[in-house]
């Protein structure tokens, strides 16, 4: 059976001893872009091999998908119908069998150590938010699938996501940029992972899985990128927000002056025309106007 997978090469950052697996997965399908006609047909599933120092054979629903999948690799996208499926992960040391539900257009099935690494690896299923994102932003998700206690995710040393436990994830939509990211124990400052430069591209979902265990020196981050549609409209070049001229200078009331420079500009005009008072009581009116009662 033919299988395909996306694999990235890994690098070891000498300064931090960190292995970062960077993967680019382009997974735009009609289902993801919201076309109603294909909503029932295509649900994409990615298998994330998050157990360091292991090579895993992957079976889905009794069929071999890929063998000897190395840690940090993302297999897929597989197209599976909605509903329940089985997965079997086999390494030289263990076999993990699990069932999982698919109920959305994009799902990650992650094999990882639980919080207690003396147990077998376990599987956690994450439903990916592949809805559209505003122009200039990317959706960043960080999932905790590592053998560390609850952790904070920091950007440039400042906590962006707080107190994430094994099996949990957090999401934020952030301006496209390269972010120096690290993961520290909740409330702490000593990195469990990173800092590494994380590239968040506009119009994409960037998913980061923290995996491994510090004791074995195998802390790692798996990065998966999925394309998203854009939400919202472009930047306005003009805002027309008034047609009656009732608050123009010389047209009186609301005449209490605000801060500089607004105060300066209107205040000068008002003084010249002898109109303004602090309580908005006009001393001169030009024409008549209706004043809407503000409830």
């Amino acid at each position: 059976m033919t299988t395909t997978s996306t694999t990235g090469t890994t690098l070891r950052a000498l300064t931090t001893g960190l292995v970062l697996a960077l993967l680019a997965t382009l997974a735009v399908t009609p289902a993801i872009s919201g076309s109603a006609a294909s909503a029932a047909a295509t649900n994409e599933v990615f298998i994330v091999q998050g157990v360091p120092e292991s090579e895993v054979d992957v079976q889905i629903d009794g069929r071999e998908i890929e063998s000897s999948v190395r840690a940090g690799a993302v297999v897929g996208p597989l197209v599976l119908p909605a509903g329940q499926h089985d997965a079997t992960f086999t390494s030289g040391d263990w076999t993990v069998t699990t069932s999982f539900e698919i109920d959305g257009p994009s799902t990650d099935v992650v094999l990882h150590w639980p919080a207690d690494p003396t147990q077998q690896p376990e599987t956690t299923v994450f439903t990916n938010d592949v809805g559209p994102v505003a122009a200039g932003k990317g959706r960043l998700t960080v999932a905790h699938t590592a053998v560390v206690p609850p952790a904070d995710v920091r950007v440039d040393g400042k906590v962006l996501f707080a107190n994430i436990a094994n099996g949990e994830f957090v999401t934020a939509e952030v301006p496209a940029d390269t972010y120096p990211v690290d993961i520290v124990p909740t409330g702490g400052t000593s990195p469990l992972l990173g800092p590494v430069d994380l590239d968040v591209k506009a119009g994409s979902l960037t998913r980061v899985f923290a995996i491994g265990q510090p004791r074995a020196g195998s802390m790692d981050a798996v990065v998966q990128v999925v394309s998203l549609d854009r939400s919202g409209s472009g930047r306005p070049t003009a805002i027309r927000a008034g047609t009656a001229g009732l608050v123009a200078p010389g047209h009186h009331q609301d005449a209490e002056q605000g801060t500089q420079p607004l105060g300066a500009a209107v205040g000068v005009l008002a003084a010249v025309l002898g109109v303004a008072t602090v309580l908005g009581v006009a001393t001169a009116r030009i024409g008549t106007e209706r004043r809407r009662t503000v409830r």
Binding site: D61, G62, D86, A87, T88, V96, T97, T98, S99, F100, E101, D108, V109, V110, E122, T123, T124, V125, F126, T127, A143, H144, F161, A162, N163, I164, A165, G167, E168, F169, V170, T171, A172, E173
Partner: peptide, 20 residues
Amino acid sequence: ARAAGPPAGVGRQAASQVVP
């Protein structure tokens, strides 16, 4: 019947998650 394994864990939003 294939051996149906125990259900996988379901990833949960952290309590600190702010939904815009």
